[in-house]
Amino acid sequence: MVVWKPKIIAFTCWCSSSGVDQAGFEGFKYPANVLTVRVPCSAIVNPSLVVKALQEGADAVLLTACKPVELRKIAPSRITEARVSLLRRLLNTVGVEEDRVRILWISSNEGGIFASEVSRIVEEVEKLGPLNLRGKMIEQP
């Protein structure tokens, strides 16, 4: 029997990629189905890319970013935060569970938090089941 495992895309900003690397460095294990896309800052991620990932077969999309409080007035990740909350509401209206798109605050020394959060999220996505967004779109009359 083939056990279904969710596929998860994680957009990781420069700082949080270093946190993701740190998770491995310190020996934290997390599910292998989280695939990272490194970007300079979470704010560069166009919401259409998140939707694209869901269309292409991802069951959930994470954006890891710097906590805005860590920065001062300047915090591009606030833009990400606003976009993600909008996108979640939007997805809800078309029947995609909002918890399939999330933002995670990971600094470059929070590898442990990344590993534990990601493991928890994978479990939750497993409960939600496969998304199969493309299949759903084809079914539409």
Partner: peptide
Amino acid sequence: EFVNIREQCAWACENKEDASLK
């Protein structure tokens, strides 16, 4: 392009099969 197969695959996955797949 850089892909981190050490910290993100070899060291973060439970077994060899998972790591290779990732």
